[in-house]
Design a binder for these strands. Structure first.
Lengths: 190, 190
DNA sequence: AGTGTTTGCCAACGCCTGTTGGCAATGACG
DNA sequence: CGTCATTGCCAACAGGCGTTGGCAAACACT
C-alpha cells in the first residue's frame, strides 16, 4: 500500500475532476451540472467521480469549500472599514475563491442543505469579523443583517445574475458608494 | 364551439395548475419543480398541463408574469423617494406578486432565458421609474446599478435565501436604513 | 336524439440521470 | 517474477423526467 501522505498516481485525476466540477457547478448550478458532463470535461469516466468523491453531493461539498480570508478589522482605521470590506469581497471574486462563492450562491437558491452551509460560513467567518467592528455586541445581528443585504446583493447581481447595469459599474464607484453604505450599516447609531 | 370570451369549463383546472405551478416554482426552482408534482398538487393528470400550457417553459412563463406596479416618483417628495421605494418592494413580497418575484429570482440564477426576462423587467419597469428621480439622464445607468445591488440584495437574502440574520430585521429598520441608502444612490452627487 | 367538441385519464415513449459491479491494464513491492 | 492494490473503462441498472397519442366520459348545440 502506498503511503497516504505520498503523492498518489490518481491525484492528477482527482484534481482534474475537482476543477471541472467547480467550473460546471459555477456555470450551471447544482441540478444542471451533471456528473457525466463533469467527467467528460475532466477527460475520464463518470464512474471515477463516484470512486473518488462518493456521490454528487460529496463532489459538490469538495468544490464549494471556502475560506473568505477576511481581514482583521481591528487593525483597520475605523473610517475605512466599509471600503476595505467591499474591496476585499471584490478581490475574492477574481480568484478561485470567487468561483466557489458563485457555486455556493447559485446552489443555495434551490438547495436547502447548501443554504445551511452558507449560513454556517456567515456565522463562523463573517460574524466574528463584523463583531470586531461593532462597539455594542447587542447590535451585531442587526448590523450584520444590513451588511449582508448589500454585500450579497452585489455578489448576486454582479457575479451570479450578471446583470448588465451592475456589471457595468466600475470598481472605484462600487468601493466608494457601497463602501460608504456598509460603513454606515456598521458604525452609524441605530 | 364555445365562445372564447365566455367562461370555459376548464378555467378552474387552468387556474389550479397555475397556482400549483407558482407554489412549486417558488419553493423548488425551475429544475426541481416537476410537471408531475405540479399536476399532483392541482389534482389532475400531467398531460393536462401540456394541453393547457404547451410545455414546462410555457407554464413557467405564465407563472412568472409580473407587474411591479412601481409608483410615480415625480409625485413623491424628493427626500422620501428611497424609503418609499424600499417600502413598496417590501409590500410586493407579501402579495401574490412576491411569489412571482421569488420564482423569477430563483430561476434566474440557473437559467439564461429567465435572466433575460429579469433584465427585460428591469429595463421596462424599473429604469423609467428611476429615471424620473434622477436629474441627470447620463447618470441613470450608474445610479440604477447601485440601487439594484441593494434592492435585489434585500430580495435574495430575505425572501429567496431566507437568511436568518436578514429575516430577523424588522420592517422599520429596513425601510429606514436601506431607504437612506437607496436615497443616496439616487440623489447624492456621484 | 344525434353529432361534434371539450375535458380528462392512462399508458407509454425516448431520454437523461446518479449510481453500481465487473473486468482489463498499469503500477508498486516482495 | 509473482502478487496484490490501484487506476481506469465499459455496460448496465433503476428511476425520474418532459412529452405524446389514443380513448372514454361529459358536455354543448341543433
Amino acid at each position: 500500500m502506498t503511503d497516504s501522505t505520498v503523492a498518489r498516481r490518481s491525484d492528477r485525476t482527482r484534481a482534474a475532476i475537482l476543477q471541472a466540477a467547480r467550473e460546471r457547478f459555477a456555470a450551471d448550478g447544482y441540478d444542471r451540472a451533471t456528473i457525466r458532463a463533469i467527467a467528460a470535461d475532466a477527460g475520464i469516466d463518470p464512474s471515477m467521480v463516484m470512486r473518488y468523491y462518493g456521490s454528487k453531493e460529496g463532489l459538490f461539498a469538495a468544490a464549494a469549500e471556502i475560506d473568505l480570508r477576511l481581514p482583521d478589522l481591528t487593525s483597520v482605521p475605523r473610517a475605512e472599514i466599509g471600503a476595505r470590506l467591499v474591496g476585499h469581497f471584490l478581490d475574492l471574486w477574481e480568484n478561485a475563491t470567487g468561483e466557489s462563492l458563485v457555486i455556493l450562491l447559485r446552489a443555495a437558491t434551490t438547495n436547502e442543505a447548501v443554504r445551511a452551509e452558507l449560513q454556517r460560513i456567515l456565522a463562523t467567518q463573517v460574524a466574528p469579523t463584523l463583531a470586531a467592528a461593532c462597539p455594542r455586541p447587542e447590535e451585531v445581528p442587526t448590523r450584520m443583517g444590513l451588511v449582508v443585504t448589500q454585500i450579497l446583493g452585489l455578489a448576486t447581481t454582479r457575479f451570479v445574475l450578471d446583470l448588465p447595469v451592475v456589471a457595468a459599474l466600475d470598481r472605484a464607484t462600487i468601493v466608494a458608494r457601497l463602501g460608504a453604505t456598509v460603513q454606515g450599516y456598521l458604525t452609524e447609531p441605530l
